[in-house]
Amino acid sequence: MYSQFFVIDGHCDTISKLDDVNALECPNNNHVSLSRLYEGRVGIQFFAVWIDPLSTDKCLHSGLQLIDRYKRMLDTYAAHFHPILRLADAKDALEAGKIGALLTVEGGDVLEGSLSNLEVLYKAGVRLLTLTWNHSNQIAGAAMDAHSRYGLTPFGTEVVKTMNDLGMIVDVSHASEEAFWDVMEISKQPVIASHSNAKAVCPHPRNLDDEQIKAIASKGGVIGINFYPLFLSKTEDAGIVDIIKHIEYIASLVGTDCIAFGSDFDGIETLPQGIEGPQSFPIIVEELLKLNYSEEDVHKICHNNFLRVMEKILK
């Protein structure tokens, strides 16, 4: 069924850029558009709702407004998108030739310290929560927050447990090391880092060290390679070769079963040289095939690893 090449992209911030949902098909400055998704053979796109906790004290309200925007996008382009709430929806989308859309939230500030709000989000269609953004919150400490570093709070522990029970994917991208290890201990399900890279290749605080990569792999999770140049390379001229370096490094460390794509399109100011948007995924695939990665391994990286996690977690 999945013999044909397609990509699952585990993270984009396009929803925040769509003041007018019709912009998804018009020429614009965004990375993601309908034509580009099709050109890049993106079979499933994870769409993140991101709330800047520094710009509002009504995070849940802001998040629900963006979820409404996401649903308007789905309604406007019903001929092209199929919402994913469970694994069967992913299969239905692929069989229909539509783009599967999985709704995520980036930043647990949206919960405003209430577990009941997690169920509100679940009922609204959210199937993944990135526990933190750049700032520590009521759930956990953040990797980029040098002034307030800690692990999971007691509330955060309950959030992770409730996500396991509901059938939501726990995402540790942006989490502090302390929080990361707390999640690994508590979660009974695979854990993902939807848009993170290897610290050994690029020593950025947002990237994962070897032990973290091994822990995600051993738990059956995935790491979505992030295309942000600052997370790819210590130099300013990152390109496709640097994306490949991160894939190669993780593959050499733990194999290909935990590697995926988490582009961060429309959430990053600049793109690597040679990458223009989703339409560039086939170029990356061609490079992997040139390096003699087997078709099976390329299919794992492109989609099968994410499908495995979805099959395990989504109810």
Results as ranks from 00 to 15, higher is better:
222 V>D: 02
122 Y>V: 08
80 H>A: 03
291 L>Y: 06
187 S>I: 02
48 A>L: 02
172 V>T: 12
172 V>R: 01
95 E>P: 00
24 L>N: 10
82 H>G: 00
155 F>D: 13
254 V>D: 04
194 S>F: 07
50 W>F: 15
284 I>Y: 08
294 S>G: 03
66 L>V: 13
210 D>S: 11
222 V>R: 00
233 S>N: 08
30 N>P: 01
96 A>R: 10
185 E>K: 09
15 I>V: 15
7 V>H: 01
69 R>P: 00
137 N>H: 12
315 K>V: 10
44 I>W: 03
215 A>K: 11
2 Y>A: 10
153 T>V: 11
212 Q>E: 10
288 L>K: 06
60 L>S: 01
170 V>E: 08
309 V>L: 09
252 S>H: 01
302 C>R: 07
119 E>H: 02
4 Q>D: 13
133 W>R: 10
40 G>M: 01
277 G>I: 02
126 V>P: 03
23 A>K: 08
130 T>I: 09
300 K>C: 09
39 E>I: 00
175 A>P: 00
185 E>C: 04
305 N>V: 03
130 T>L: 07
61 H>T: 12
71 K>R: 15
34 L>H: 12
205 P>C: 03
188 K>H: 12
30 N>G: 06
159 V>H: 04
43 G>F: 07
268 I>N: 05
89 D>E: 06
217 A>Q: 05
217 A>E: 05
279 Q>A: 06
80 H>D: 13
186 I>V: 15
200 A>Q: 14
105 V>Y: 01
104 T>F: 11
158 E>V: 08
257 D>P: 00
106 E>I: 07
267 G>N: 14
4 Q>T: 09
264 D>C: 12
279 Q>E: 12
243 I>Y: 12
230 L>S: 13
201 V>D: 07
245 K>V: 04
189 Q>S: 13
193 A>Y: 09
48 A>Y: 08
107 G>D: 08
56 T>N: 09
250 I>M: 14
234 K>L: 05
2 Y>V: 04
33 S>V: 05
257 D>C: 02
262 G>I: 13
225 I>A: 11
37 L>I: 10
100 G>D: 07
89 D>L: 04
287 E>Y: 08
224 G>K: 11
257 D>S: 15
78 A>C: 03
79 A>G: 07
177 E>S: 13
192 I>G: 10
16 S>M: 12
13 D>C: 13
173 S>M: 14
299 H>D: 06
124 A>M: 01
24 L>R: 06
6 F>P: 05
111 L>W: 12
179 A>L: 10
27 P>D: 12
19 D>E: 15
156 G>I: 03
224 G>M: 15
36 R>D: 00
143 A>F: 06
208 L>F: 07
192 I>A: 14
306 F>T: 14
10 G>A: 15
111 L>F: 10
